[in-house]
Amino acid sequence: MIKKTIYFFFIACTIISLNACSSQEKQEPAVEQIRSICKLATLESYYNNVAEVTQDTEKGITHIFEKERKMWVEYTGVVSLGIDFSKVKLDIDGVNVTITIPEAEVLYIKEIPDTRKITVSQDGFNSNKITSDTQTGAIKKAQDNMEEAAKNNRTLLLNAQQRAKDMIKSYVDKIGSAFGTTYKITWISVDV
């Protein structure tokens, strides 16, 4: 009876382990989309970002001899600033041109590749690994921080809008000079 039980247990374990060992390669279907946009980027501001990660030890017998870990991730990020060009309107009345232009906004943020410098504290006898997912979470927080810093930098946003105005004015002056006309431009700023 006992021998039968042992044989059955052994066969069950073998079947379960064979199923567990097989790996199914699951790939999510790619999602791709092309869409029309109309954004004029006028400034790119480069930021130096540092994310500090502190990972405590866990409780329990299996976590004895773990050490608290610290990781610093330093990298360069860029914030692109500009205007939604689809909201630019030109109204012409003789030599008077009224240009409606939206306020500048953050168009996108990105991390410059190959700029990450990672510094990690020493691990204990029992490993307390800082995973790639934790690093990614830290980068996400740093990116959000960088975007917030750019959005709150009123001077930078005004400079971005001013550059857009200069570019559009230059364009208007070019066409005007072709017709022998000097246009007087009035600017109207609208909210995003």
Partner: peptide, 17 residues
């Protein structure tokens, strides 16, 4: 996680996307 950002450089561009 604690983060710090400091502005390093501003570059003029003129990209109409």
């Amino acid at each position: 996680v604690i983060c710090e950002s400091s502005l390093r450089e501003v570059v003029n561009v003129s990209k109409l996307s």
